[in-house]
Design a binder for these strands. Structure first.
Lengths: 157, 157
DNA sequence: TATTGTTATACTCTATAACTATA
DNA sequence: TATAGTTATAGAGTATAACAATA
C-alpha cells in the first residue's frame, strides 16, 4: 500500500489517502514490507530461473540431503501436491535427484546434483545481497531484535 | 516453514530439518510471520465474506469517500485490472456505490453504503481482535519499534 | 496523445479430494 | 488401515496487452 496524493478542493493542497484505520494493524505493516521484499526477491532470483519456492526447496535439499518429499513439504509449510511440481522442475533441470528408498519403496529421498549445489551457491550469494539491500537502513542489532520479535509470533503456531 | 523432526540413524534422537541457510535472511522470518498472520486474517474475515483485499478496499472507500478506482489501485499497490473484480464484488453486495464523476466522465467515485459502513465496523472489530491475538506476546513498545523498523524498509520504495 | 476503467489472458501459489503403490 | 507420492482441479493473487470512452 502507498500513501497517495489526491487532488483536493483547493488547488495546491494535497490530500493523502487515509489509511489510518489499516495502519493500526501490525499485520498491515508486516504485509506491506513483505510484499516489497518478496517482489525484490523474485527479481533477484529470476536470472537463475528460480522463484522463492524453487529456491527454498533447493536450499533445503542441499542442506538436508536424503530428505523425503513429505518432510520437505512440512518444512516449507506447503501441501504435498503443491510440492510435486516444484520438485519436478528441479529434477528436470537436473539440480536434484529423486532416489528410491530401499527400506520404504513408497518414498523418495532427494539429493542435490553438482549443478544443484553450484546454483545454490550462486543464488544464495545473490539473495544475500538482496537481503542486505532491503534491510540496509536497519542496524544489525535492530535486525536481531526484529527476528526475535517475529520468532515470538511464529513460535505461537 | 517449520522445523521438523526427522528420524535419524539412532532410534531416539531427533534430527531437525536444517534451515540455517534460510534463517540468515530477514526476508525468511518476515515471510513466515506474514504467512501466519495472513492465514489467521483470512479465517477472521471469512464470517463476513471478506478477504484481505476486499476488506482493505472497503476500509479505504469508507475512510476516503469519493476515491477513484485508479487512486484505490495505487493505495493498495495493485494493478487497475485486478481492482475491477474486487470493486465489482463490493458493489454487487451493495457495500459500495460507483458514481459517475461529472467533471471527468471517464472516472467513477466510490462511496460506501450504510451496509458497507456497518460491515466495516463489525469486520474491523474482528480484525482488531485478530491483530491483538497475533502480537499478544509482543509488548506495545516492541510493536511500535517493529512498525518503525518496517517503515524504514517501506519508505525506501 | 494520454488517462480511466475494462476485458481477456496467463502465471503462480494455495487447498482439497481421490487415486496408486506400498507399509 | 495408514502413509508417500501423484493427479486433477479450483480458488485466489498478480501482471501485461489491448480496447472503448473520454480528457
Amino acid at each position: 500500500m502507498k500513501q497517495i496524493k489526491m487532488n483536493s478542493a483547493n488547488d495546491n493542497a494535497l490530500f493523502v489517502a487515509d489509511d489510518v484505520a489499516l495502519k493500526q494493524f501490525m499485520g498491515y505493516h508486516l504485509k506491506r514490507a513483505t510484499n516489497i521484499v518478496m517482489s525484490d526477491l523474485a527479481t533477484t532470483l529470476a536470472p537463475y530461473e528460480l522463484r522463492m519456492l524453487t529456491y527454498t526447496a533447493l536450499v533445503l535439499i542441499v542442506d538436508n540431503p536424503g530428505i523425503r518429499q513429505f518432510q520437505l513439504a512440512v518444512a516449507m509449510d506447503i501441501e504435498r501436491p503443491n510440492l510435486v511440481i516444484i520438485i519436478d522442475e528441479l529434477e528436470q533441470r537436473e539440480l536434484i535427484l529423486r532416489e528410491k528408498v530401499p527400506t520404504d519403496r513408497r518414498a523418495y529421498a532427494m539429493h542435490p546434483t553438482l549443478a544443484g549445489k553450484q546454483l545454490y551457491k550462486k543464488a544464495t550469494k545473490a539473495v544475500n545481497t538482496h537481503d542486505k539491500k532491503m534491510f540496509k537502513h536497519v542496524s544489525k542489532t535492530d535486525q536481531k531484535f526484529l527476528i526475535a520479535t517475529l520468532q515470538k509470533l511464529i513460535d505461537q503456531y
